[in-house]
Nucleic acid binder design. Sequence first.
DNA 1: CTAGAATTTCAACAATTGTTGAAGACGTAA
DNA 2: TTACGTCTTCAACAATTGTTGAAATTCTAG
Lengths: 223, 223
Amino acid sequence: MAAENKKQDKREAILNAAESLFAKHGYDGVTLRAIAKEAGVDVALANYHFGPKRDLFDAVLLRRAQILNSWRLEALEATVQNAAPNPPQVKDIIRAYFEPLLKRSQVQEPGWKSYYALIAYVNSSPEWGGTLMTQFFDPMIHRFLAVLKTALPGVPDKSMYWGYHCLSGALTLAFAQTGRIDHLSDDLCKSDDLPDACDYIVDFVAAGFSDMIAASQKETATL
Amino acid sequence: MAAENKKQDKREAILNAAESLFAKHGYDGVTLRAIAKEAGVDVALANYHFGPKRDLFDAVLLRRAQILNSWRLEALEATVQNAAPNPPQVKDIIRAYFEPLLKRSQVQEPGWKSYYALIAYVNSSPEWGGTLMTQFFDPMIHRFLAVLKTALPGVPDKSMYWGYHCLSGALTLAFAQTGRIDHLSDDLCKSDDLPDACDYIVDFVAAGFSDMIAASQKETATL
DNA sequence: CTAGAATTTCAACAATTGTTGAAGACGTAA
DNA sequence: TTACGTCTTCAACAATTGTTGAAATTCTAG
């Protein structure tokens, strides 16, 4: 059981350690020495593989962003195909955005859990949120919004964008698993029960989007 | 115009500088020297007034939390009185939660803007979110949820808590003003137009809560 | 003005930071 | 074996970190 280190999985051990620690304490709250210790390697090795600290941070983010994007686009296209030639239901589109986070036993994988918390950190940070999230996720999101618009004809773009912002805030906060809702609800709701959280959030968000149709119709009616 | 320092507003200058910098870069991303420089005082003064760094962070959070809580409770009770003896409308309750953030020309005050971004950072951080937010805001939130339940009879508590979690995520992300939605919407939506943001988020969140009634009725009907 | 308390600055501390260059260990192909 | 390129460690660097004790300044009573 000793000497299980294959060839150079130390590189990935560094990524995993960095992912976990950045998720917990943020970029500046983590030292390269802490990462190296968690990964069981020397401090200098992180710099050898990834360059400066900031580049390691980007590498951690990028690794799973690509996978997640492809999973979400897959689920979205399947939803579109499923409903064709009609536009899909709003709730099914929202589900296509949420369910890739849960499938393939991701919930059990601690790496993905850390990654979700990390995304929450990046998303709500004035330092990273504006640029990094855009860079990694916007093309996928635009495709998602385009499909959502077919299900919500006549809804102004501004409502759609703010609606997505609400979705994004609710989703990232829930997946950050801060333990907040556990305290607030006296353990009626559990931060780490992501499938359960998804059920509720999907309903909430779908209702928020669906209501835009009624609102936009009421608006045009008064003209 | 020189020598405008009154008595000991240096203490507040430190709080303001810390607030602004913590909001931008998080707890670990800010040094006491950066705070002191921004405040125009010596490094040691922060420690003299507030003790260790962590206590300064708490002091920054606490200063406006108390004010915000009282404003929100005021607005909530006014809403209740206004609708009595009937329960208020869902949207009016949500508005009572949002509008204190905008009133009294807070939008212009950079201090409050920084504070909102700081709350977003704390809220989504696994390190602070579970404990600090609970400590500062939970009593006010419980009163808010109690009133909301009168407007949404029969809705299960679990739905209510997850609904609040969605509200909280959407609100804090928007008020973090990361510039994210500006990029995503090609400047159709502006991060720093908080009143505009509130209009859209209030509608979205109110719809999410209101839909819970229909859902819970449909559920009991199938039994 | 004077004494004493509160505030502010100065200078320095031990510890930690990201990064680097040289040396060592490993794997592979001749 | 030898040689060579990749991976890993070691040791150390200059800079920065939070914190502190003593000195200097300012404020407030008497």
